[in-house]
Simulated scan of single mutants.
Amino acid sequence: MLLFADVGIDDAVALIYALLHPRIRVLGVVASFGNTPRKLLLIVPWQSCNLLHR
């Protein structure tokens, strides 16, 4: 799965859910900015993946 998101708090939760789901394989995250400041676009997915050791 490719996740297209602005990676705000709701999308971070969706990313974590997808990473933990046994039948979903996350291939990548396409971060675009909408409600999230541009400087946080890479930090949130990076921290979510590191938190889950992915």
Rank of each mutant, 00 (worst) to 15 (best):
W46T: 15
R54D: 06
L42T: 10
P22S: 11
S48T: 12
G8Q: 12
L27I: 13
V29R: 02
A5L: 06
C49Y: 04
H21E: 07
D6Y: 09
L42N: 07
V29A: 02
M1S: 15
K39T: 07
L52I: 15
F4H: 12
F33Q: 06
P37R: 14
L15Y: 05
R25P: 04
H53Y: 13
V29H: 01
L3C: 09
L2G: 05
Q47N: 14
D6L: 05
G34K: 03
C49E: 07
H53C: 13
S32F: 06
T36M: 03
L3K: 10
L51A: 15
R54F: 13
L52V: 14
V13D: 02
H53T: 05
L2I: 15
N35K: 07
I24R: 10
R54N: 13
A31I: 03
T36S: 06
R25Y: 02
V13L: 12
A12R: 08
D6V: 08
Y17P: 01
P37S: 14
L40T: 08
P45F: 05
L40M: 10
L41N: 05
D11I: 01
A18N: 02
L3A: 07
A5Y: 06
G28T: 04
V30S: 02
R38V: 14
P37I: 09
F4D: 06
Q47W: 12
A31T: 07
L41G: 15
L3R: 09
V44A: 13
R54W: 10
V26F: 02
N35W: 08
V13H: 03
F4W: 12
P45W: 03
D10S: 12
A31C: 08
Q47F: 13
V30T: 05
A18W: 00
I16C: 08
A12G: 09
D11K: 08
A5T: 15
I24N: 08
L19S: 04
V30M: 01
D11Y: 02
A18K: 03
L27G: 14
A18F: 01
G34S: 06
F4Q: 12
A31E: 01
G8R: 09
V26C: 02
